[in-house]
Amino acid sequence: MAEIGERTVTIAKQRFDLRRDAIERATRQLLPEPISSHYVVIGRRRYPPKQVIALATGLDRADFTSHQARRILMRLGFAVGRVPSTSVVSSDRLQVGESVRTDRIPSAASSRERRRELAEMLTALPGQWVAIKDDELLLAASTPNELVSWLSRHNRRADSMFRVPEDEIAAGGLAPL
């Protein structure tokens, strides 16, 4: 029986030996694509499961389903989740392809709770550049250029970008004279 963290799987009639640590290494420099529904958490980042399985196997994404990809990654011990449901509305204020939540209007309390949840997530990313949208982390990257390049490539628009403070000087905003 295969150990946890190692699986032999058959996808599109081909057999692959997949290892959790190999996938973690392979995704270390991989920027996540936008999440449409499901995601897998690898190295504190959220990826579309199909992006990860395509990378790990070299297969075309049309060769397997999102469900297959999720199941494989779960069996390798990765956390898999689903973003809250949203509805897309058109608005003059939005760019093409951008969505807003319309399923619930957050109260002040729930909005505060979401901000706290985001802040707790950011504690794991000191020194990283982050893009935030609707109080959710869109992306963490090593450089601001990488972050903006990703936003541009994926036609996404953040509400905010900054570096997560790694020390008191970064956090303090010490005033220059």
């Binding site: 802040a119 950011l122 905010s160 008191e168």
Partner: peptide
């Protein structure tokens, strides 16, 4: 904006 303190002990 809620920003984590360095070290992550507080927000």
């Amino acid at each position: 904006k809620d920003i984590p303190d360095p070290g992550g002990a507080a927000v």
